[in-house]
Design a protein around this nucleic acid. Structure first.
Lengths: 249, 249
DNA sequence: CAGTGGTCTAGACCACTAT
DNA sequence: TAGTGGTCTAGACCACTGT
């Protein structure tokens, strides 16, 4: 078998092992949105033929993406691009304090406010990477567990990317699915940062605690294809009601 | 090739795929301390012969452990049981605020106090899972960056597991290596929990901040072989100096 | 040099999912 | 029944590490 000069493996990776070149090729397709969340990938055999690589090597690259959570596979069905879920964030690491009986309580989302801002506040413009003259959608929501407020979500989105979303029922913790349905734009990945803080009077009012109590503050930036920012969100959580847990190594 | 009834794969896994049975077997050896941190594993071929399984299957099981960080492999040398490092905790997710120049600053550990408690305080006894009559070593340390206090570490250890450690130079962020050298006991894994809190007067004094400021509080439980608890630690960090960062999915 | 892990292939067999 | 991914094997070749 000879080296294919017209290889569809992406350029600039010639010195890498084959399975990494394949992996980079797949990453590129995800990044460009050629493979979108929910899509089924070509089968191993098809990819193997297309790229001129053994199916074992294809499998290896795909399994890396499965490890990262970008792809999920279902036996007998196929491989699919993962939809990022709210599950991916808090629920992966955070354990909400369980009730006295040890059961996990039912959750509820309540919308506290929706508004279209004709101009982006300075901070928001910076975080979203847009001009101050950009129209922005602001959504404020509340997460309740067993009827008690646990945390608040305040989201800012460039209006042109989510136009129409404000007329949707946002009482759901699957915001990104709603965005997808309303606008066709997919959220591909997100980054979060966590700090400790003290509840502002507004936080306190929404959460039903005293101002000055400690809260956990999470800042999230969510991206569509090509690294465009589609949402900037602040989560403020009662520290007595949820905490973060991890296992090492 | 026939099924070996005297297989050295651990019992109770007969219905699993082979590579998972091998994985469980390896986990068991790590758990029991048959393979200790720093040890070199038998080679793939040796394991393949010993368990009567192809080397590809052995490799697959080992790679899972590499993924988890339990094993590290060095080409041309061998596979080794990982030593848990301080790196594994904070440094993996936390980004300390970089200095104005963007460089990362040098760190320094200062010992703020060492004492052997003849009795375990109630809370400590609970966290360590020992009787209140148990002798406990308490070590309090301070992490400085660029001369500024960033966080405090307060550790409690059952004295019988770390006897002699109090006569060591603890000015190092590799506590577990010191324990290993002083006593031969290995720290195998740890769990951490994070909350927001408000600085107590003691915290504030050590960190050089005002009482009432928000702090991040991390509680850590570290284990030796057989799930015995060897350390319980509280870390208190200035929230303005470090924050937690993660990428999804 | 011999021995280690790292890459890559080819192919057999299985279990699950659709139609 | 045809097609998917899941498991398992066997073996070739390579790069790196020690002596």
């Amino acid at each position: 078998m000879y080296m294919d000069e017209n290889s569809r493996l992406i350029a600039g990776t010639e010195s890498m092992p084959l399975y990494l070149r394949v992996l980079e090729t797949f990453r590129d397709r995800l990044f460009r949105g050629i493979w979108k969340p929910g899509d089924m990938l070509p089968t191993e055999n098809e990819l193997s033929e297309e790229l001129g690589v053994s199916s074992g090597t294809i499998r290896r690259a795909i399994l890396s993406l499965v490890q990262e959570g970008q792809i999920s596979r279902r036996p007998g069905k196929g491989s699919f691009v993962t939809r990022i879920s709210s599950q991916a964030s808090l629920a992966r690491f955070f354990r909400f304090r369980e009730s006295d009986t040890g059961e996990s309580s039912p959750t509820e989302i309540r919308v506290a406010g929706i508004s279209v801002l004709p101009e982006a506040p300075k901070m928001v413009a910076e975080k979203l990477g847009v001009r101050r003259t950009t129209k922005v959608l602001k959504v404020q929501r509340l997460l309740l567990m067993a009827g008690k407020s646990v945390c608040t979500y305040t989201s800012y989105m460039p209006y042109n990317l989510v136009a129409g979303l404000e007329n949707t029922d946002l009482t759901s913790n699957r915001l990104y699915l709603l965005i997808e349905e309303a606008t066709g734009n997919h959220v591909v990945r997100a980054e979060e940062m966590l700090r400790a803080n003290i509840a502002t009077p507004e936080d306190a009012a929404l959460l039903g605690i005293d101002a000055g109590m400690p809260v956990i503050l999470i800042e999230r930036t969510a991206y569509t294809h090509n690294d465009k920012i589609i949402e900037w969100r602040q989560t403020v959580g009662r520290s007595d009601e949820f905490s973060y847990k991890i296992r090492l190594p």
